[in-house]
Write a protein that binds this DNA or RNA. Structure first.
Length: 648
RNA sequence: GCCGCAGUAGCUCAGUGGUAGAGCGCACCCUUGGUAAGGGUGAGGUCGGGAGUUCAAUCCUCCCCUGCGGCACCA
């Protein structure tokens, strides 16, 4: 029999007969490893212990200690166990697919009636039973015809469709535990008993389209989370609780920031506290942009459909636009308009006024542009996904040669903004030419290269996102990570030669001839509404001092201190701080609690002693300790602390 | 938009085929209290909207609206 050579992670190599399985290799090394082994990596591929190896290879045997592989196998097999449990309880249910996702898995079923929360309990109980049966897992490679015949006989149409979609040269793996089987590429654990019966939980039921296509049937999806042990599961459930506590909708109410109501779905009613955050952030961005060489403009909300037709948006996005028809008797002209869903066509109109010279480029035109989009009802989510929002939008008109330096400049700009706002790192996604696109290959080559060079010039890494660019040009998306590890795509940078073309933007070059500028769409925050939601959740409501809507509350302990409280408050306000006096007839305990819940960063408590000594007792949010200090000093410190980061 | 769930006082929620209740909040009174809820009294509800069944609907049925969890979407 032919021998093959297997190289282990420590560099040692040994010979085995061709067709040896990782299980046999493990057994050859030690009994205990054979027992503990769960899978292997063979030449970089995650490999089932039972799959034969036919040629020289690098091999690593995994145990439950290898998190990545262990979790992959656990979640994967959990999905199968769940599907088996469902079919054991309801044999008529049809199975479809069930992939591993972050923290767990889901499985989509075709079933007449949706699953209820009570059903989840029954399924969980059955899953535990199945795990305890310790059924061995086996995989078999079947011929395509046999598999199709099998699934047709079992009335599993979705599986037949899946097989049809698998390329002809790929082996079809049939996966069995006990009498239950599923089509699956593997790898798998050796038996279901290797699954931790106390470290998973079925979380929710939801509808999901078959193959993610809204024209196809709606299936019933069950989500589960699974870990190696009970502790990890508990940690994850705690994380979810923590995320819920940070929910901006809840904090928005508790901190009295904004509300939303039925008369304006998807739009924000900003309260004084929330609007304070908004304007503080906007003032900051305005200063940054001025310093960054942008000019600021403002353009109309209601714009004739002719412009949207010219820009191409009418064709593509009409469904998502708020249409405003002026068709009343009193109107002189009957027109059809749309609320602007974006600012770029209007910016081109500003650009097009007067003749532009190459000397005017790059022209960086910014607008805090209020936009309205008729988002599908199901997409709305607090202030994160709304129908009326304001972008920190800008368009840079430039020549092809300027793209690279403008891109690098923007990345630096964005880095500085994110840092000021408390996000130290972000990820760059580089989306390149999609299949359906306009423009010449040479132009794509050049522009993509310019973006890549620009990223490198700023010393950042990027993740390639092939084929995900806009039809008119490549783009960069910037994702920041929040305090509990969630990612948010906020910034964007898109190269667009198309819109200037459609809307007839030109500049006069050195040669005296007219040329077409490029347009770079860019944003840092995305929308103020969404970004403020992110800020709130990132900080758990405890916003940095300069952004906090109420920075200081001055609270009296006894009513004899009221005059001094008012005096202190007035002095704080005069120094530009957002301060409030609280002289209500309540105990200091009560006031401290209320303003702590309201996330006020600093409480100055004033009783008889402070009045006499011209001091204040300072208490910072989240700290139990207080400090008694002369008010003049405190005023000085707080005024410094309130300076926005760009002015320090 | 699709699937499921929900909508009762400002907020969080209980409740019943015979037109409603708690806690917090709010108002007033007592209390002047030293760092996360002092006490008392009181006001406050077209039970999301519309239609139907019924002697009678907040409750049952249907339609709509809005929200929530997903899916799809996100220029």
């Amino acid at each position: 029999m032919a021998q093959i050579s297997l190289t282990f992670p420590d560099g040692n190599a040994r010979d085995f007969p061709a067709g040896v399985t990782p299980a046999q290799v493990a057994a050859d090394i030690s009994n205990s490893l054979a027992k503990k082994a769960i899978s292997a990596t063979v030449n970089g591929a995650h490999w089932d212990l039972a799959w034969p190896i036919d040629a020289d290879a690098e091999i690593a045997i995994h145990t439950m200690k290898d998190d990545a592989q262990a979790l992959e196998l656990i979640r994967h097999d959990m999905a199968h166990v769940m599907a088996r449990a469902v079919q054991e309880i309801w044999p008529e249910v049809k199975v479809t697919i069930g992939p591993v996702i972050e923290n767990g898995w889901y499985y989509d079923f075709d079933r007449q009636d949706p699953f209820t929360p009570e059903d989840l309990g029954a399924i969980e109980a059955r899953m535990k039973e199945i795990i305890n049966r310790r059924d061995p897992v086996t995989t078999e490679v079947w011929a395509r015809d046999r598999a199709v015949a099998f699934y047709e006989a079992n009335d599993e149409p979705y599986k037949v469709e899946l097989i049809d979609a698998i390329p002809g040269d790929k082996p079809l793996r049939m996966y069995w535990h006990g009498h239950w089987q599923d089509l699956c590429r593997g790898p798998h654990l050796q038996h279901t008993g290797q699954l931790p019966a106390d470290a998973f939980k079925l979380m929710s039921v939801a509808g999901a389209y078959w193959r993610g296509d809204s024209d196809r049937p709606m299936l019933q999806r069950i989500y589960g989370v699974g870990f190696k042990n009970r502790d990890d599961l508990r940690k994850y459930l705690n994380f979810l609780e923590e995320a819920e506590k940070r929910d901006h909708r809840r904090l928005g109410r508790e901190m009295d920031l904004f509300h939303m109501q039925e008369v304006a779905p998807g739009q924000v009613f900003w309260h004084p506290n929330g609007w304070s955050i908004y304007t503080t952030l906007q003032d900051y961005m305005r200063r940054k942009q001025r310093a960054g060489g942008y000019v600021e403009v403002n353009t109309p909300q209601v714009v004739d459909r002719k412009l949207w037709e010219a820009s191409g948006h009418w064709d593509k996005y009409q469904e998502h636009m708020f249409i405003v028809e002026v068709d009343e008797d009193h109107a002189r002209e009957k027109t059809m308009n749309a609320l602007k869903p974006m600012n770029c066509p209007c910016h081109v109109q500003v650009y097009n006024q007067g003749l532009k010279s190459y000397r005017d480029l790059p022209l960086r035109m910014a607008e805090f542009g209020s936009c309205n989009r008729y988002e599908p009802s199901g997409a709305l989510h607090g202030i994160m996904r709304v129908r009326g929002f304001t972008q920190d939008d800008a368009h840079i008109f430039c020549t092809e040669d300027q793209i690279e330096s403008e891109c690098a400049k923007f990345i630096d700009f964005l880095t500085s903004v994110y840092k000021d706002l408390g996000f130290d790192s972000f990820e760059i996604m580089f989306a390149t030419r999609p299949e359906k696109r306009v423009g010449s290959e040479e132009s794509w080559d050049h522009v993509e290269k310019a973006l890549e060079q620009a990223i490198k010039a700023t010393g950042n890494d990027y993740t390639l996102d092939p084929g995900e660019g806009a039809f008119y040009g490549p783009k960069l998306d910037f994702k920041l990570t929040d305090a509990i590890g969630r990612e948010w795509q906020c910034g964007t940078f898109q190269v667009d030669p198309n819109l200037p073309e459609r809307l007839g933007a030109t500049y006069v070059g050195e040669d005296g001839a007219k040329h077409r500028p490029y347009m770079l769409h860019r944003a840092c925050l995305g929308s103020f509404e969404r970004f403020i939601g992110i800020l709130i959740e990132n900080a758990s409501g405890k916003l940095p001092f300069w952004l906090a809507p109420r920075q200081v509350v001055v609270a009296s302990i006894v009513s004899d201190a009221d005059d001094y409280v008012n005096e202190v408050t007035a002095a704080l306000k005069a120094a530009g701080l957002r301060a409030e006096a609280d002289t209500r007839n309540e105990k200091i305990n009560y006031k401290v609690r209320e303003h702590s819940v309201g996330k006020v960063p600093v409480i100055l408590a004033i009783g008889q002693r402070e009045v006499e000594e011209r001091t204040v007792t300072l208490r910072r949010l989240g700290e139990k300790q207080t400090q008694v200090r002369p008010f003049a000093d405190v005023l000085d410190d707080l005024a410094k602390e309130a300076v926005p980061p760009d002015l320090r």
